[in-house]
Each structure stands twice: as structure tokens, then as C-alpha cells.
Design a protein around this nucleic acid. Structure first.
Lengths: 239, 239
DNA sequence: AGGACGAGATTGTAGGACAATCCAGCGAAG
DNA sequence: CTTCGCTGGATTGTCCTACAATCTCGTCCT
């Protein structure tokens, strides 16, 4: 999500603001940096110097600082006193811990999703998401496949009906996106896709059957697999 | 942990080593508002007007806005566009969801704490925390008892060695503090203290025994009890 | 060479300005 | 009398400038 979006020539004459229908300047900056981190325009460890970003994005310092502050709360960048912001680089331990969190949180989400499976529209949404994953698993390139993959997970969390949980999981997914990408690229020829797809399928079946216990278990197992596959990456992929 | 900005907010100014002596102005404001919400100086729903707080705290608008922004990411205040910040009021559903989160997160913490029980110093810290709870349960007034109670939970989470988990749980505890307080006050004469204390004791025993499974179960059960006791509060305590 | 020193870069904070937006109160219309 | 629309004040969103504090790094002196 947060697709490339059409943000044309950024530095229009300041002064005029979009007619509120839409994101505040801070929101736009946050979204821009987020997607920038996602698609590698900002590399992990890279420093984000205020003056540069101000020029680049055509915004004032307050706005930028508020955006960076928010990104830091989300864990996507770190801010060191008097040294400024930089794109966060995760250590191996941190990745491990993030996956421990995803395990319990998305496990809860799967459980709740199973409990709410009879909410109108839920069945269709889940089936559609599963279909999309299976389709892109066969045909699409890696970036798209990963995207669809995350969307499937996100759908499950949305179906939990737990707004706070959705926020937390979104954060965690964003933070783990880069390493997840590298891991997926590295394991792609070892049949990982098929394995992952089959886990997704069993998960969907459990949820559709309303089997909360089973859904939670599958989700947790699945994330444990994903996590440990990521942890096999060489040291160069961590801080 | 009342007041004293010992743990500066999110992962913002946490250099690995403390090269800077004092908390930044933003940190001080965040800590001030936090403790203000805790001890009722700021009531839930109350609006936090920038001009007032600027005068009251003697700081500039940038600093204040950055602090409010961070507090909003922590979920302690809400910021509505063009309406500013106000102390967050939780709905019944939100409280329920927060306790679902605490259940899985602190459950994980208890499990990890049990696994790490042999780390030097851990046994003593846990025993000290348990002792403090039991002591204040007998002798102290409600605010102090609740404080010690939270400190006990926090100790368990610290012993998990999972820094991100600690941050999340801290957030959740802060958000639920208010209702937790009212609930405790309401149930105090129904022997709730003794019940809670005995659960804490079994939890400590399970952790000390290194029984991760049992520790997680007790923690989760305990939080489920706490949560449902809070949900018995009348509607007037919710948004 | 090694360490002290200073110049430039960068951030932290204050404070002013102005447009956009919200809100309460008032008056007109039904 | 109630409802609707308008206006003016209050408040926020964003920009800007300024300056002190702090960090970085190259230079110079011993």
C-alpha cells in the first residue's frame, strides 16, 4: 500500500494548502518517507538531514520535524540527540524480537478473525485475498508477491475488528519489510513460495471453519517459519 | 515511576549510552503531561489548548506540538485536525481491546521472564517486587498499591529482556491507568486485593520455577480477571 | 604523530506571522 | 419557538527567522 502515489513537483509556491479534504503536510511527509523506505529510496542507516529533506519535499522545518518525530515513534527511523534522524537498521536480535511480537499479535488476530468469520463480507474478503496471493505466487515478480503476501496478513488482521491491533501490526510489518524482502529473494528458488502459500491456505481454511484455536496455531507457526528464515540471512543484512 | 522522566518516551532519544545529561525540553513536557494524566491533573476528555500549555510550561510552540504529537502516537491524547489535542477517553470496547493486547503481550513477557529466570539478579528483583506488592497491599492506600502493582508487572516485562515489548506494555498500562484506578477503588472492599495478590504470588512462583507455560497462563488469566473487573464499571467511566 | 583547538554543519528551541478551520452566538426566516 | 445561515473570535496548521548547544572534522602546535 501507500503506492508510489502521484506527488508531482513538490515545491509549489508555499502558502496554499490542500482544501483540508486530505492529508496534512505532516501526513504527506510521513507517507513519503515510509514508501521511500519501503522501496529502498532511503537505505537503512542513511541519515535524514533536515535541511535536505526540507528542500526536497518543499516543507517547513516544523512540519518535517513533526513528521520525523512521528516516524521515530513508529520505529522506522531513529533520532539521536543533536545527530538527527536516520533510517533505522535492525540488529538480528531486534528482528527476532519483532517476530516474537508479530507471532503473538497476529496469532491473536487470526483467533479473532475466526471468531468473526460470520460477519457479512468477511468470507468473501478472505477468499479474495487468498486468491490474490496464490495467483501472484505463480505469476508475479518478487516485489508484487511480497506485497500481496502482506496484504493477505493485513486482511486477516482487519477481520479481527481490533483497530489497535491493526495499527501495531502495520508498524511491525513496515519495520520488518526490508529484511523480509531480502529473505524472500534469497529463498525464492528453494520452493519457499509454495511452502508459504500452503500455510496461507490452511490458515484461511481454519478461519473459514471458525476454528479459532487452529487459526491461531497456524498463524503462529507460519510466522515462526518466516522469522527463522529471515534470521538465516548473513550478518551484512543487519546492523 | 510517577513523574520522573526516567524512560524517555518512545525510542526517540535512546542513545545506547547516555551522552547527554538532561532530558530535552520535549521529554520534560511529555513526562509532565503523562504524570498529569496519571494523577488526574488532566481529566480524560479535557482539551489541551496549546496557548495555555505554552504559558503554563514556559516552552515554545514547536516543542509543545512535538510533545503532543508524541503523546498522541502513544495513544494518551487524541489530536483532531484543527481542533487540537485532548486527553483521550476510552470507550468500553477500546478498554476491552487494550486488555486483549495486554493479555497476549504480558503473557509473552511472563513466558520470556520464566525462560530467563537464571539471569543474574533476576530472582532477587522479582522477589523484591513481589514483596513490595504484598507489603503495600496490606498497609498502603490505593494510589500507592496500584503503583506497586504496576511496578510488579513492569518488572516481569523488564525481565523478559525484550525492549520493544517493554515499550508497548508501558504504553498500554499508561492508557489503562485511569480506568484501572477507578475499578480498583470500586472493588477494594470486595477482597479484590487479596485475590490479586495471590495471583501475583503464583505468577512469581511459576517464573521462579522456570515454568514458562504456567507463567504465561497465570499472567493471562490474571489480566483477564483485571480486565473484566474493569468492564463492570458504569458507563459514566467510559466515553 | 598525537592531541588541543577552532570553524562549519546540524540540531534544539523560541517566537512571530498568516491562512485555514472550527465554534459559539446572533439575527433572520419559517 | 425552532431552525438555518452568517459573522467574528478562538485555535490550529504551516511557514519563517534567529540563536544557542552540540557534534564533526580538518588544522595547527608541541
Amino acid at each position: 500500500m501507500t503506492g508510489s502515489g502521484a506527488h508531482g513537483g513538490g515545491r509549489r509556491t508555499m502558502g496554499t494548502h490542500p482544501p483540508d479534504g486530505r492529508p496534512s503536510a505532516v501526513d504527506r511527509v510521513v507517507a513519503t518517507v515510509r514508501s521511500g523506505v519501503r522501496d529502498g529510496r532511503f537505505a537503512p542507516g542513511q541519515r535524514l538531514v533536515e535541511a535536505d529533506l526540507m528542500r526536497e519535499l518543499g516543507i517547513g522545518r516544523n512540519t518535517l520535524r513533526e513528521a520525523l518525530s512521528r516516524l521515530s515513534s513508529d520505529g522506522l527511523v531513529t533520532i539521536a540527540p543533536h545527530r538527527g534522524a536516520s533510517v533505522r537498521r535492525l540488529t538480528r536480535t531486534e528482528v527476532e524480537q519483532l517476530y516474537e511480537l508479530r507471532e503473538v499479535l497476529e496469532g491473536l488476530a487470526a483467533r479473532l478473525a475466526a471468531l468473526h468469520i460470520n460477519t457479512p463480507g468477511h468470507r468473501d474478503r478472505l477468499l479474495a485475498a487468498l486468491d490474490a496471493v496464490q495467483e501472484t505466487a505463480r505469476t508475479a515478480e518478487m516485489p508484487q508477491y511480497i506485497d500481496e503476501n502482506l496484504r493477505f496478513h493485513r486482511t486477516v488482521v482487519e477481520m479481527s475488528g481490533h483497530t489497535r491491533l491493526l495499527e501495531l501490526v502495520d508498524q511491525l510489518q513496515l519495520q520488518t519489510f526490508r529484511v523480509q524482502f531480502r529473505s524472500a529473494a534469497a529463498h525464492d528458488r528453494t520452493g519457499m513460495r509454495g511452502f508459504s502459500v500452503s500455510e496461507h491456505q490452511s490458515l484461511a481454511e481454519a478461519i473459514l471453519a471458525g476454528d479459532a484455536e487452529q487459526a491461531e496455531n497456524i498463524m503462529r507457526t507460519h510466522l515462526r517459519h518466516t522469522g527463522s528464515s529471515i534470521l538465516q540471512l548473513p550478518d551484512s543484512d543487519f546492523a
